[in-house]
Structures are given as structure tokens and as C-alpha cells.
Design a protein around this nucleic acid. Structure first.
Length: 462
RNA sequence: GGCGCCAUAGCCAAGCGGUAAGGCAGAGGCCUGCAAAGCCUUUACCCCCGGUUCAAAUCCGGGUGGCGCCUCCA
């Protein structure tokens, strides 16, 4: 498998540290609000990568943190008149609700910054002891000049970064590019005891400390949104590599943004939709399908119209799966069709090749459409159960890699509606088409769509 | 100022040197009692100008237009 590595700017063959195993760390949400769909993209994309690794037989350890203490957490908690930990608890619950809906599998570990203060302090202490960080009156800063490789991820030499720095009134730092590892407590803020007095961790340090604690000094893959490349991931590298004396991550993966009218969706611009809002109009699966219908590194525009397109596409795939399921009910056992078998294996192979090429989900999805088109065109009520199962299983299997097509359509009908369907069948038999059509329209008004097929009448809910 | 990304049909989107996948929408046809679902057909001077090559959407140079990071942000 090849993955695009931000560190080298190239697609590289993926070689794990330990054969058959993958250690991944992905930056999780700051839990001060509902996640928006821009946040959801990396969660969906890297969940898909994780699923694909597992599909390929890797044993994956996937760690995704919760940032549950920082300036925004404190500000929001104050606004709401609740404690930071109450705020965190609330939005962690909400995160899981959204993530579960979106088919994002739970990580192996979801560590919280506030539950890993010891590990954080240990890391900071090490950095101070080895001369990479300094304490100024209870605030501890990382000295970027002490790390020769600083800037290697964002591909910017330190002096260039410095030249671009905006007005920084921060007093205590020795250098404008230095960043906080530990922040001295301000009145009313939550704080923990430390060798430098009461305070709390800076933003970047938690990921370094927790990645090390849960995965070790060197990990295979670190991922997140492109906006984390600088400064967050750059700083993580500095902290981790200085503290551990080892390379931090072999592969750095970054997803592109979600745009609104070609502009980055972000909380600071205020042009965002929360996942919760979108789920009021579209199913979570449509959201997921939409995200995967473009390559993960490309920017992707978000609009109602595009969501509708995605919805129609997903519907087509479900129809195919559903039609086959319907035929299965009356199919007879027998040998599987050789041609279908070949067709499926061809498209499955293409699917895997696409995924191997830097997780090209857009191309992988096209293989699903290829299967659907060919299956729709050749399958009849005379096909064997084995043939039908093969198609159905292949679609489900590949769909699972992407985290889609796993739902069963609602198969429950009220007695009343069932009676109406039977009545309509009777009317059709008697060529009373006026009555039959009337019943069909009436059912449509109730969200039941009827399809007359060679294998019998089929219904689905809108 | 530094670093980087993008430009393919009405819309979305693959493509990574060998003559343009796939989806949505539209049109026509087939199937159907009529529908629905589905199938078939149909639409591309690949932003522009040069260059390299037997061959370029793909590589190189130069434009034009759009976006991002360098500040909290997925």
C-alpha cells in the first residue's frame, strides 16, 4: 500500500514498524462544542484507513485523544456556568453520538489530556532537564532553536517561519517561535500540581505524551487535518523527538478541508455546519459516503445540492443490494454463475488497488458502482441463491471497508398496509388497474413505494 | 515575504506518459397494463501559451484564475 507522507511530500510504500501491526495516532476533538462536518472528515477518513488496514489483516492500535483542557474549554465552561470537566463530559458524549452515527469505529484508546497529567509532566520535565525547554516563573516553554529539525514537517526553515510571525505580545518567551508546554494557573482556572507550580498543560504536549504512553516512542502513522501541520504537528515532532531521542512518526497523513463556497469551513470563520445539524436533513451514511466520494487530500465543497447527489448515488447502491436480497427469497440453490464470479473478482481487485493507492476511496467507490451496474444488468429471478449471495456478500464486504452499505432496510409492515398490498395484487390479477393504481398512489402517500417485478411485488420505504 | 495545493462534461469526480473511469442531473430508447427499479444509447478541443517526447490531461517552463498554511482551527 502506498500513502502520501507529508514529511517527505511523496507517496511512499507503507512499511510498518512491526510486521502485521499498525500503530496510529490521530488528533481528536477539543470537546467544547458539537463537532462540525469539517471535524468529521478526518475522523471518517482515518477510520476508513484503519478499517482498510484491518481488512488487509493488520492488527491496528488506534489512539485518538480528547482535548479536554485548554483556553476554549475554559472560556466555554465559564459562559455556561459549569466546570470544565462537566463541559468535557457533555461533549464527549455528544462526540460519541455523532461518531457512532457516522460509522466511526471506537479507537483502541480515547485518552483524555486531564487523565494523563502525570505523563505530560514527565515529558515536560525530561525536556527541561535535557535543555530543550525552560521555566519562566511557572510557565514552561519549548525552545524551538534547540531542535535542529524544527520545521521539517511544514517544510519551512525556522527563520522563515519567524519572518512570517504575527505580532506576538507574549512577554516571557525567549524567542517568538517558542511555544508553551505548561501554563501557569490564572485565577479561577483548573490546575494541577507540577514541579513548576500549579498550572495546566499547553495544547501540543498532550499528544506527544499520550502517543508515547499508549503507543511508544515511535509510531507508524500520525494523522489529522491539514491545518494541524503547523504549528501543532510540527511542535509534536519537536517535543517527542527531543524527549525520546527517536523519530516520532514514520508517516504523517493530512486530509484536505471541507469548504463552503470554496472557502475553508472553520469555527473562527463561523461558516460551519455541525454534524448534528446536517443529520437533521441527511442520513449519517450519506454524510460518510459524501466524504469518501472525493480523495481525502483534496478540498471538498459542502452544499445541499452535493449532498443530494451523494444521497442519490448511495441510494442506487442500496437499491442494487436490496433487489438482490429480494431475489434471494425465492431463489433456488445451485452452482454460482462463473461469469458473475469473475466480474466480482475483477472489480474487487480494482477496489483493492484503489485503496492501496493512498486510500483512493473515490476510485474504490466507482468499483462498487461497476458491480451494481453489471449485477443489475445480468441478474434475474432465475439466478441461483449462491450467485445472489456472492454478489450481495461482495458488496457488503467492500462496503464495510468504507463503513457504508451495512444497513438493512426496514422490513416491517403494518397489517393494514400488508392488506392493501394484497388487495392491490388481487385487483391487478383482475385487471382492475384503476383500483390498483389508486392503492399504489395511496401507499406512496404513506411512504411505501411498490415495484412490480418478475419475482413478485416488492416494496420499500421512502 | 516564505511554503504549498488546485483548475477534467450542466454538477461532482477518478486519472500519475499510450489516446478520457464512475456517479448525479438532462435527452432518447428498452422493460412495465401504467409505474417504480433497472438496462442501453447520448454529451469533454482535459484553463491558456510554449517546450520535451514517436506519444502529454498526465512531465518541464511561463501565464491566468481560485484556495490554503505561516495565528486558535480537522
Amino acid at each position: 500500500m502506498k500513502l502520501y507522507n507529508t514529511l517527505t511530500g511523496k507517496k511512499e510504500k507503507f512499511v510498518p514498524l512491526t510486521e502485521g501491526k499498525v500503530k496510529m495516532y490521530s488528533c481528536g476533538p477539543t470537546v467544547y462544542n458539537y463537532i462540525h462536518i469539517g471535524n468529521a472528515r478526518p475522523f471518517i477518513v482515518f477510520d476508513t484507513l484503519r478499517r482498510y488496514f484491518e481488512y488487509c489483516g493488520y492488527s491496528v492500535t488506534f489512539v485518538q485523544n480528547f482535548t479536554d483542557i485548554d483556553d476554549k474549554m475554559i472560556a466555554r465552561a465559564n459562559e455556561e456556568g459549569i466546570t470544565v470537566s462537566q463541559l468535557a463530559e457533555r461533549f464527549i458524549t455528544e462526540y460519541y453520538a455523532d461518531a457512532d452515527a457516522l460509522g466511526i469505529k471506537r479507537a483502541s484508546e480515547h485518552p483524555k489530556a486531564t487523565e494523563n497529567i502525570d505523563a505530560i509532566i514527565d515529558t515536560v520535565e525530561k525536556l527541561v532537564k535535557d535543555g530543550y525547554a525552560y521555566n519562566v516563573d511557572g510557565d514552561v516553554y519549548f525552545s524551538t532553536k534547540s531542535f535542529d529539525d524544527y520545521g521539517k514537517l511544514s517544510n519551512q526553515p525556522l527563520d522563515e517561519l519567524e519572518a512570517g510571525v504575527r505580532i506576538d505580545i507574549s512577554e516571557k518567551k525567549h524567542d517568538v517561535m517558542d511555544f508553551a508546554l505548561w501554563k501557569k494557573q490564572k485565577p479561577g482556572e483548573p490546575a494541577w500540581d507540577s514541579p513548576w507550580g500549579k498550572g495546566r498543560p499547553g495544547w501540543h504536549i498532550e499528544c506527544s505524551a499520550m502517543a508515547n504512553k499508549y503507543l511508544g516512542a515511535t509510531i507508524d502513522i500520525h494523522s489529522g487535518g491539514q491545518d494541524l501541520i503547523f504549528p501543532h504537528h510540527e511542535n509534536e515532532i519537536a517535543q517527542s523527538e527531543c524527549a525520546n531521542g527517536k523519530k516520532f512518526a514514520n508517516y504523517w497523513l493530512h486530509n484536505g478541508y471541507i469548504n463552503i463556497n470554496n472557502r475553508k469551513m472553520s469555527k473562527s470563520l463561523g461558516n460551519f455546519f455541525t454534524v448534528r445539524e446536517v443529520l437533521g436533513e441527511f442520513s449519517a451514511e450519506v454524510v460518510r459516503f459524501f466524504m469518501l466520494s472525493a480523495h481525502y487530500r483534496s478540498p471538498v465543497n459542502f452544499s445541499k445540492e452535493l449532498m443530494e447527489q451523494a444521497s442519490a448515488g448511495l441510494e442506487r447502491l442500496y437499491n442494487c443490494k436490496d433487489n438482490i436480497e429480494f431475489l434471494k427469497q425465492s431463489a433456488k440453490s445451485g452452482k454460482a454463475d462463473k461469469q458473475i464470479e469473475e466480474m466480482l473478482s475483477l472489480h474487487k481487485k480494482a477496489f483493492i488497488e484503489s485503496m492501496n493507492d493512498d486510500i483512493n476511496t473515490a476510485a474504490a467507490i466507482s468499483s462498487l458502482f461497476d458491480i451494481a451496474r453489471e449485477a443489475n444488468g445480468s441478474v434475474t429471478e432465475n439466478d441461483t441463491l449462491e450467485t445472489l449471495c456472492l454478489i450481495h456478500d461482495t458488496i457488503t464486504e467492500l462496503g464495510e471497508v468504507l463503513g457504508i452499505l451495512q444497513n438493512e432496510r426496514d422490513k416491517s409492515l403494518s397489517d393494514e398496509i400488508e392488506k392493501m398490498i394484497n388487495k392491490r395484487q388481487q385487483a391487478r390479477k383482475e385487471k382492475n388497474f384503476a383500483l390498483a393504481d389508486e392503492i399504489r398512489d395511496k401507499l406512496k402517500g404513506q411512504g411505501i413505494i411498490l415495484e412490480d417485478t418478475p419475482a413478485g411485488v416488492k416494496w420499500r420505504k421512502e
